[in-house]
Design a protein around this nucleic acid. Sequence first.
DNA 1: GGCGAACCGTAACGTACGGTACGGCTGGTC
DNA 2: GACCAGCCGTACCGTACGTTACGGTTCGCC
Lengths: 218, 218
Amino acid sequence: MLHILPEIDNSQALTERQKAVLDAALRLLVEEGDQLTMTAVARRASCSKETLYKWFGDRDGLLTATVQWQASKVRVAPVDGKGLDLASLTASLERFASDWLKVISSDTSIALNRVAVGHAGSGKDNLGAVVLENGRFALAKRLKPVLEAGRQAGWLDFADAETAFRTFFGLVARDVQIRLLLGDRLELTEAAIGGDAARATQQFLALFGAKTGRKADS
Amino acid sequence: MLHILPEIDNSQALTERQKAVLDAALRLLVEEGDQLTMTAVARRASCSKETLYKWFGDRDGLLTATVQWQASKVRVAPVDGKGLDLASLTASLERFASDWLKVISSDTSIALNRVAVGHAGSGKDNLGAVVLENGRFALAKRLKPVLEAGRQAGWLDFADAETAFRTFFGLVARDVQIRLLLGDRLELTEAAIGGDAARATQQFLALFGAKTGRKADS
DNA sequence: GGCGAACCGTAACGTACGGTACGGCTGGTC
DNA sequence: GACCAGCCGTACCGTACGTTACGGTTCGCC
């Protein structure tokens, strides 16, 4: 019995009890990876398996609901203002970079991406699409307006926002996510993340900064 | 019965028949993802399960052997010469970028990374380490001498080869691998790969090209 | 107080699959 | 030709887990 996902977001249709159950499933997913069992979820959430099946259909439904539930929690404020000076643009980019590094290095993100990657192999559900939509594509959607504003203000110079975004993405993430997903220990301290965010931002500005208006300190 | 991996490479200890079996397992892995069964491998390879268990110990042993077998096939020539002019350096970098994009977008690599990521969750074996060692770290090991040579010749300027490599890695891979692993369709044509390789190389040179000796065409 | 819906806990069922055992075939050795 | 090692095909075993079923409890509602 395949459940077709509602278009975007059904996290509001969840009762408090259901959210609590999904939180339990999420914790279990982080702790045990994809081999979490329905029995374990029921026990952890102090609910019956019958209830799990009634609410979520089957195991894949539960997994999907869990991923969507986590995704709905991450949704952030949609980029505040168009501060037009270079300093605030730089700060915005650094903030995005730092936030993104924190996300992809979090236990939750790693666990979710792992299960989604595993399921993408046998394409019976679209966990991968959900994760992608709420991760990399959501990031693009939030960052592009900043890039466009930077271009409007004359600080940035690029032809295609998508291409510019992907370069920024690469400069920020580098090999971090794949290494973490493959189990590489790679402790990212607060300080290291801040440094990486600053470096990536400077590199991005070096590549896409407009000819005019640069040379802030030389 | 856990089998400890020999230090680096035991692909030479395999008989032709064993290689054929591993090739069958590899094809099955690409086709079916991680839920390939021992029975399916035996049938595909026209061998008995008893033989599989005798040769590889258990399912994880077979998986590990399969991953290592594929890895042993990818090993490439260790970077030819130190062509010292900028053109050959650029060509080398583009070649690395192009090769890497081809690898990570291949069905085989995607399947292998998926199973390794899945297993990294429940850390009972080190598939992730094997994949990482033969992928991202092997690439670094081959590329760093090129970067060092470029620095020696005065074309590149960087403090740490590792950092420079990771930036190059990010510029080349961007979001490609994670999107493919998560099931995003993302057809990389030969032409697109070539273009991306050239772009990444130019960006890398813009960031790490030495002040002297640049400006080839302006 | 009676009633039904929702839900908990647990037992039970069916199946898929990892792992083992065994009989038969082949090919090499003496 | 006797013998034996290695391997194929298949049947078999045990278990884990997804899924279903059911008795008992709580809680609103009349």
